[in-house]
Design a protein around this nucleic acid. Sequence first.
DNA 1: CGGACGTGTGAGAATGGTTCTCATGACCAC
DNA 2: GTGGTCATGAGAACCATTCTCACACGTCCG
Lengths: 145, 145
Amino acid sequence: MSAPEVPARRQTRQRTAVLALLDELDGFRTAQELHALLRERGDAVGLATVYRALQALVDDGLVDVLRSEVGEAAYRRCSPVHHHHLVCRSCGRTVEVADPPVERWAARVAAEHGFADVQHQLEVFGTCRPCAAAQREDRLSGRGR
Amino acid sequence: MSAPEVPARRQTRQRTAVLALLDELDGFRTAQELHALLRERGDAVGLATVYRALQALVDDGLVDVLRSEVGEAAYRRCSPVHHHHLVCRSCGRTVEVADPPVERWAARVAAEHGFADVQHQLEVFGTCRPCAAAQREDRLSGRGR
DNA sequence: CGGACGTGTGAGAATGGTTCTCATGACCAC
DNA sequence: GTGGTCATGAGAACCATTCTCACACGTCCG
């Protein structure tokens, strides 16, 4: 009933590092990958802290989270407006794509069935041109099987 | 380049039981839930077997799989034609909904960005009428906070 | 500036869903 | 029936994620 209660998020080296790293990457990365990258560049951060930082960023709407097919969570720095993703299933490169008419469609279909408070989740997966080319080569050379 | 190689899937009591159970349920259920249900009704099936049966069914296109927000896999008996789901986030009741124009939109957007071999994944979540009503009551009675 | 308070951190343990292992059992063709 | 193969099941292994708890650090107040 009172203030919205954002509990004074502290500015620490670790959280800054996680956000900065996400800023310079352009695809979805798992928490484990981000942790490894930070380690490599000498920025010692605990794995638990990476998870905590990512959760905080998701709560603040600065980062989008996606579940891979094997159930891992992948994170990406995103614009705060509603959008969807076109993701390369091979290299992870991601393009944000604008709101299709699906928005309206989803709302209408949900209403027809008596569903309220509707959200939707739409991701498009494909193989980007460079990866498709690489795979074609692989098939031709190495392994006939 | 030879036979499609469906390696002679065997018909066993356990696989039949899993499929029969899915047939009579109408929402997405996790493997653990299905396993527990089978146990309850005296149909002793190992957990690993439930997972294997579900994977086989998914491979055969008889069952759809969805990842919950916490990363668990949930399964549901589905029609073999391409479709999407409208899922109640409270009780899990699911409605299959027909192909929206998204199909075309996804293909076009992907092509514009040079992505090939496109798939998409669209789910709509909401609260079905009975659940919405129940929640409204909860809020009024119990907890003013 | 300095110290107190409370939050953030990190190593490792705990958790929990899913997969693997391997000895045993069931299915199917002959 | 008999044999070969695939399926089963209990438990271990696996692995991403979360929890625990002692300690460090940011923030606030004097």
